[in-house]
Amino acid sequence: MLELSNITAGYERGKPVVRDVSLAVSRGEAVGLLGPSGCGKSTLARVAALLHRPDAGTVVLDGTTVTDYRHRAPRALRTTVGVVFQSPRLSADPRLRLRDLIAEPLKATGRRIEIRERVDELARAVGLGGDLLTRSVHEVSDGQLQRACLARALVLRPRLLICDEMTAMLDASTTAALVAAVENYRRETQASLLAVGHDQVLLDRWCDRTVSWDVPPPA
């Protein structure tokens, strides 16, 4: 499903954050990526989600070798991957209501007809009930917002879900609910999962295998 080979990536020329890393996730597999803060796991997740162009190395996604990133990547390839970020506050456009936030990818890809049905279905799946869908981003808690962000990531039925420290800022019950929602989705669709985190207990229980990344942070 996803093959990252010899990836070197960074934000400044000559100062790579990720050096020569390889990682593979096969179809239907759940892989946990475990590493200390600052080791570059989020950067690797961004490369895998086609959001950051690596300086070297190849990305093969769903059998296609990726040549372009961000807007230049073909839309069909980009939407194969769903991403959930660490901070729900920063990853939600502050002007939107939760319903629009979840529906945003459907609008962006011209599938407005599906909005009503799909948003309600996903809201149930991630446990957003009551009037929450009509509230603005600043009117809900972090946990509720992260549920909406997960729903947004799932709305286009991605075949690979990347959770970059998805539960790092949440309490235990919300963490359990979100992980359960991800697992239900994967059981239905056989989607793959790349879960990035620093919580070994969680990743060991959640994923089929956990890759430990023991590189010291760059000095």
Partner: peptide
């Protein structure tokens, strides 16, 4: 990140 999320959403 919300711009990243929008790009990822197509």
């Amino acid at each position: 990140p919300f711009i990243d999320a929008a790009i990822s959403g197509g």
